[in-house]
Write a protein that binds this DNA or RNA. Structure first.
Length: 578
RNA sequence: CGGGGUGUAGCGCAGUCUGGUAGCGCAUCUGGUUUGGGACCAGAGGGUCGGGGGUUCGAAUCCCUCCACCCCGACCA
């Protein structure tokens, strides 16, 4: 490709609405342009990268035995009504009507379509297992699209769906997808981590997320290398901290705490540490109208864990100020567990406290020296809080007291680029997808589903690979492998001849070459090549040609080297293939 | 959806408080001098100042209203 024939829409300045580096660089390098919130044009440079990712994904899916197909992006409401998700999915589902006023949606995912299709295509267990995938545009009407294509409303996704006769077969395919995903991200040159994930409302047996590690990532991941443990913070089990409960040593005392509402307020007012206080949170219950959730003052409630408790209404919903006033008789800043007449569920660490501080259920008053059992009934104990850095890994075999730093969790951030999931029979039952087994009996097929955020990978890769000059593409994702930067292309026949010849030879050899034949100053050409992140650069100029040499530089390396014009193409092919 | 903010040339911004003929830098186009890390000189084009309504002799500026976009919180590839 010659730049004179290629839309190279680079920007010198950073558009003001881009916050994170990948978004800024994608705009500056002319990869994408915004059309509306969360909706983007992919310009030629951007599309080249996107296709690279797609192809790696495609190759690895094919290698793992999945079959590519294509489903429609617009789907009829009836399918979603069958699965029950027309009502359940909520605002993210973009609903549209056709000219006959029939309901459709723009597909955010394709379980309904594939399950409906396979319920008629698969008749016999002999056709199983089978795994189908597509690479296609999805639309999810995100509440808050942001960070460019990192969290867009329209995005490119690879989604795969597998069908099985047995759970064992599902597990086999799941494992092979796990391996395929690991190969995809490795080949793309990304630093990533597979993470145990929440199976959520769908249920099912197993789920892993694949995260590209980046500080700007929106997900927090708890990691312990000693036990090869990584889990989404939403899921990671939080052990009790602070040792077993000590016997009560103080008398309960009611103290006026005027205007002290938050934990920090109360703790500093009473001169105690926040880990000697508890906070009592009131939510709606499944059987009782209200339920109290108790975590230590310095801990955070994990809502996903909380709603798994049978007494807690799912999805979690908070009690209103009025409900709390009516039932408990005080405002949110003064709630406590003494004399509280609703079910109390306490986090493990909160349940281990003694002589602690809590609200007195009277506005402006707290109790100190509170003890479970003596001053209130024993709570039901449950894992309610999110883990924090320094917590002991749930896999650790040592007891809490003698654990070392190696047993502790650290928290890193990641961008979720893949998610694999054992669905079980949720959709196959709803859509009546069964086949005949060996005995000629109908068997509902367990399913798995496997997603990769193709367009998100592009952004995530930039988050991991950039410097102050621009993008540094991993070889497998680069829009071009090599750029030829001639100095004086329009002045010097020698330069032009060699540049053209090299361009022809390398292109012939299957290398994707960009020849910068613009009549621009060198600085501009260098800056653009660096910004776009092309891995290899050859500079051809009169100066070095006098010695029959050209200059070569890798994008990831600051020191250029001279190489001989003799056998130039072969030398470069060697450098490119690494 | 709640809270905060911004809309002025392709991009980055000033001008708005205190109403009086719409500006700067970069980019673009023309001519010239340049050419190994974002050059210089001379000239040119480009704007319903987010939309609508109002106040006023006069509105980018004041008032009302709608819209779009960005940032912070609950969801996901």
């Amino acid at each position: 490709m010659r730049t004179s024939n290629f839309l190279l829409s680079t920007l010198k300045e950073t558009p003001s609405d881009a916050e994170i580096i990948s978004h800024q660089l994608m705009l500056r390098s002319g990869m994408i342009r915004k059309v509306a919130a969360g909706i983007y044009n992919w310009l030629p440079v951007g599309l080249r990268v996107l296709r690279k990712v797609e192809n790696v994904v495609r190759e690895e899916m094919n290698r793992a035995g999945a079959q590519e197909m294509l489903m429609p992006s617009v789907q009829p409401a009836e399918l979603w009504q069958q699965s029950g998700r027309w009502e359940m999915y909520g605002g993210e589902l973009l609903r549209i009507k056709d000219r006959h006023q029939r309901d459709f949606c723009y597909g955010p995912t394709h379980e309904e379509v594939i399950t409906s299709l396979m319920s008629s295509e698969i008749r016999s267990y002999k056709q199983l297992p089978a795994n189908f995938y597509q690479i296609q545009t999805k639309f999810r009407d995100e509440r808050r699209p942001r960070f460019g294509v990192m969290r867009a409303r329209e995005f490119v996704m690879k989604d795969a769906y597998s069908f099985h006769l047995t759970q064992d077969s599902l597990q086999d395919t799941y494992d092979s997808m796990y391996d395929a995903y690991s190969r995809v991200f490795s080949r793309l040159g990304l630093g990533f981590r597979a993470v145990e994930a929440d199976t959520g409302s769908i249920g099912g047996n197993a789920s892993h997320e694949f995260h590209v590690l980046a500080d700007s990532g929106e997900d927090a991941i708890a990691v312990c290398n000693k036990y090869d443990y990584a889990a989404n913070v939403e899921l990671a089990e939080a052990l009790a901290v602070g040792g077993n409960r000590k016997p009560a040593s103080k008398a309960i005392e009611k103290i006026a705490t005027p205007e002290q509402k938050s934990i920090d307020d109360v703790a500093s007012f009473l001169s105690v540490e926040t880990d000697q206080t508890i906070k009592t949170l009131i939510v709606h219950g499944e059987e009782n109208p209200l339920v109290a959730l108790v975590v230590r003052g310095d801990h955070e409630l994990n809502e996903i864990k909380a709603e798994k408790h049978p007494l807690v209404k799912s999805p979690l919903s908070w009690a209103s100020e009025q409900e709390i006033e009516q039932t408990i008789g005080c405002q949110t800043g003064s709630i406590g567990i003494v004399g509280l007449d609703i079910p109390v569920i306490a986090d493990r660490s909160a349940a281990n406290l003694s002589d602690f501080v809590c609200g007195a259920n009277v506005d402006g008053f707290h109790f100190s020296g509170v003890n479970w059992e003596r001053d209130c009934k024993e709570p039901e104990i449950f894992d309610l809080r999110s883990v924090v850095a320094g917590d002991i890994c749930a896999r650790a075999e040592t007891s809490t007291q003698e654990s070392s730093e190696e047993d502790q969790l650290s928290i890193t951030r990641g961008v979720e680029v893949g998610h694999i999931f054992q669905l079980g029979t949720k959709y196959s039952e709803a859509m009546n997808a069964s086949c005949l087994d060996k005995n000629g009996k109908a068997a509902v097929m367990p399913m798995g589903c496997y997603g990769i955020g193709v367009s998100r990978i592009v952004a995530a890769a930039i988050e991991q690979n950039h410097d102050d000059r621009g993008i540094i593409w991993p070889a497998a994702m680069a829009p071009f492998q090599l750029v030829i930067t001639p100095i004086g292309y329009h002045k010097s026949d020698k330069v032009k001849t060699l540049a053209d010849e090299l361009y022809a030879n390398l292109t012939q050899a299957g290398v994707e070459v960009l020849l910068d034949d613009r009549n621009e100053r060198p600085g501009i050409m260098f800056a653009d090549a660096d910004l776009i992140g092309i891995p290899h650069r050859v500079v051809i100029g009169e100066k070095s040609l006098k010695n029959d040499q050209v200059e070569y530089k890798a994008r990831c390396n600051d020191s250029p080297e001279d190489i001989s014009v003799d056998g130039l193409s072969d030398s470069l092919l060697g450098l490119i293939s690494g």
